[in-house]
């Protein structure tokens, strides 16, 4: 029996060796997470001991690069959410419409042509969108609202929204496709029109997927960096006017990194504190998004 196979002992050793090598690879992803949390934590401790959590969370001014330095993070958070809501709103309007069209109206052939085109939007580098916002969309906004300055939240938000359309569309369409045919047929059987089926049967049944796609879109927009760095400006501001210049958390990190900031300085540590807040915000949004999908997804089995 032994003749035709390699030695059993040798194969066993090889098997154990491979198993442990593969397990080690799997471990790298866990080490990455631990690394992210501890790097952000360790580097922001000196920042928080010097500035204090109270000032960070309740201060209303963020002027770390001028004297007097202020480290109230609220203008950055304000700017971040202003852009993110414009982006997620834009993406929701066009993404949801696209999902209705692709799932309820388009023939298989049309869907097969249109969908890949729409998805190209998600593959274009963000720096390209930043350029587009700054040099194409901003002049149009300035034409409509002549008072607008070159850097504004609206331009960055709209362009970011276009970028996220495929994400919202795909997630919503998946949820719509999961609605069983029998529900549609029942509604059609009662004489419903196509738009009535879409709005009153499909939409309520797929609502969890739509809500999740909106939350994940916000999370995606919060973390986006290059579009806001190029088009939204570098001026932290507490404002809800989309035509104002603002600064997002990500854009602040970029501003500090552009210069050669000495390691260990307060400015250096401040980008880790902002990064930690950014990480926690996106993590929470992603978790909520996933819970909405799994918990409120209708079970049709």
């Amino acid at each position: 029996m032994q003749k035709d196979s390699r030695g059993i002992a040798k194969r066993k050793i090889e098997e154990t060796l491979v198993l442990n090598l593969l397990r080690l690879s799997g471990l790298i992803s866990i080490i990455t997470t631990i690394g992210i949390i501890s790097i952000l934590g360790i580097n922001s401790i000196p920042f928080f001991t010097e500035v204090g959590l109270l000032e960070f969370f309740t201060g209303l001014e963020w002027t770390p690069l001028f004297i007097p330095q202020n480290f109230g993070v609220s203008p950055l958070v304000n700017g971040t959410f202003l852009v993110a809501l414009i982006a997620a709103g834009t993406a929701l309007i066009f993404g949801l419409g696209s999902a209705f069209y692709l799932s309820e109206y388009a023939s298989r052939k049309v869907r097969k042509i249109l969908k890949p085109f729409l998805e190209i939007l998600a593959g274009i580098p963000t720096v390209v969108y930043g350029y587009f916002a700054l040099t194409f969309v901003t002049p149009i906004i300035q034409f409509i609202f002549p008072e607008t300055i070159i850097f504004n939240a609206l331009s960055a938000g709209l362009v970011m929204g276009i970028m996220i359309i495929p994400m919202v569309s795909t997630l919503s369409e998946d949820a719509m496709n999961a609605v069983p045919m029998s529900l549609r047929e029942a509604a059609y059987g009662l004489g419903a029109k196509k738009y009535q089926v879409a709005l009153r049967v499909i939409f309520p049944s797929a609502i969890s997927g739509v809500v999740a796609s909106f939350i994940l879109a916000i999370s995606r927009a919060i973390g986006e960096t290059m579009i806001v760095s190029l088009a939204a400006g570098g001026k932290p501001a507490l404002t809800i006017n989309p035509l104002d210049a603002i600064q997002t958390m990500t854009a602040y990190i970029v501003t500090v990194s552009q210069g050669e900031t000495p390691q260990g300085s307060l400015e250096y540590n401040s980008i880790f504190a902002v990064g930690l807040l950014l990480f926690l915000l996106t993590l929470i949004m992603n978790l909520i998004g996933r819970i909405v999908v799994t918990k409120y997804a209708q079970n049709y089995e």
Partner: peptide, 15 residues
């Protein structure tokens, strides 16, 4: 990890 913003990886790499 797939949902972590890319700039956070930049901070990890820098430190």
């Amino acid at each position: 990890l797939a949902g972590v913003p890319s700039i956070i990886y930049g901070l990890l790499g820098l430190a």
